[in-house]
Nucleic acid binder design. Structure first.
Lengths: 161, 161
DNA sequence: TTATTAAAGGACTGAGAAGTCTTTTTTTTG
DNA sequence: CAAAAAAAAGACTTCTCAGTCCTTTAATAA
C-alpha cells in the first residue's frame, strides 16, 4: 500500500512526537533502535522530513530531532508526500496516465470512491490525532518481538544500530 | 497501489476477454502492442495467469491466449493474487507484521475500513463485470497517445514489439 | 579554544522488480 | 514429413528502492 520509506517516516514522526519536545530531542540511533529501522537509511528519511518542515532538527551535543507545537497540526498525508512525492497515492489503479472520470479505466468507478475516502482521511488526520491513538492502551508503533527475538535480545545486547 | 505487474495483468486479461474466444485467440505480441506493455515481460505474466487457471493458452499456428466462458466469473482479486502473491493487499499500512484489531497501529482504525471495502469490491467484481465497463463509451484500457506519439506512430511503424 | 556530539551530505552496495533475448517445445498446415 | 507459428522456458541485463558506510559541518560544553 505505502512504500516502506513512508511507513518508516510515519512511524518515526509519531515516535519523535511522543518522545521529544524542544528541550528533549531524540537522535536517529534512538528512533532506529526503538522502531527497528536501519539507522543510516532512517537518517536520510529524517533529513527529508526536516527539510520539508515536518520535523525539526538541531546538531551537536544534546541535538537531535523534535517536534514543535505547530508540527502536530500537519496531516499524515504531508509525510507521505514528502518522502514518496506528491500524487503517489493518486495514480490510476491500472497505471494509466490518461485515466480520469471523463476517460476512465474499467475499474475507475469501482475503486475511485475508496481511494478518495482514504485520501480524504489521510488529509484530515493530523500527527496530533495519530499521537492520541498511540497513547491508547495496546496501540503501538513497533513490532512485537517473537519469543525467539526476546531470547536474543537478552543474551546479546543489540549491536545493529 | 498495485504493482506494475498486476496492472499489466489486469489490463491484459480484459484485453484478451474482449478480443478472444475459443476460436479466435490473441498472441502476446498483439496484447503487448495494443496495451504498450513490454512483450517478453508480458509473456511471463500471461504464463503465470495461464498456469493459475485464469486464462487459457494454446501453442502453434493459430494459437495464443483466450478466455473460456467460465473464466469470466473469476474475481479481479484472483488476478492480483496470482501475480503478486496472496495477501499482498492485506498488510498493515505501517508495515507492522504484528498489527491487528487487538494490537493495532495508530492508523489501523482509520485505514482499515477502506482497505476492507476495497478488498471486498475486488473480490466481488468479476472479469465479466469489468468487461461490461470496458464496452461502455469512453472507457478504455490503453493510454491515449499524446500528439507527439501519434506523429511517431505514423512516421515510423512501431518496431518495439 | 579544543574535544565531543550529533546531524548533514555523499558515495557506494545489495536485493528485488522489471525488462530483454535466445533456445526449446508443441501444434498446425501444406 | 517438413516448415512455420506460437507459447514455454530459462539465462541474462537493467533499474529502482532500500540499506551501508565514511567524511564534513555545526553546535555544545569543558
Amino acid at each position: 500500500m505505502l512504500s516502506r520509506t513512508s511507513q518508516y517516516a510515519l512511524r518515526s514522526v509519531l515516535f519523535i512526537a511522543e518522545n521529544s519536545h524542544a528541550r528533549r530531542k531524540v537522535g536517529v540511533g534512538e528512533v532506529a533502535k526503538a522502531l527497528d529501522i536501519p539507522k543510516y537509511y532512517l537518517a536520510k528519511i529524517l533529513r527529508k522530513l526536516a527539510v520539508g518542515g515536518l520535523i525539526r532538527s538541531s546538531k551537536g551535543p544534546g541535538g537531535g530531532y523534535y517536534l514543535d507545537s505547530e508540527d502536530f497540526e500537519h496531516a499524515l498525508i504531508a509525510i507521505i508526500e514528502i518522502v514518496d512525492g506528491p500524487d503517489s497515492l493518486k495514480k490510476c489503479a491500472l497505471g494509466l496516465n490518461t485515466c480520469s472520470s471523463e476517460h476512465p479505466c474499467p475499474i475507475h468507478f469501482y475503486i475511485g470512491p475508496f481511494r478518495d475516502s482514504l485520501l480524504q482521511s489521510l488529509s484530515e488526520i493530523t500527527v496530533g490525532d495519530a499521537l492520541q491513538q498511540l497513547k491508547e492502551e495496546n496501540v503501538f508503533i513497533a513490532n512485537l518481538l517473537t519469543a525467539d527475538e526476546k531470547k536474543k535480545e537478552n543474551g546479546r545486547p543489540d549491536e545493529r544500530h
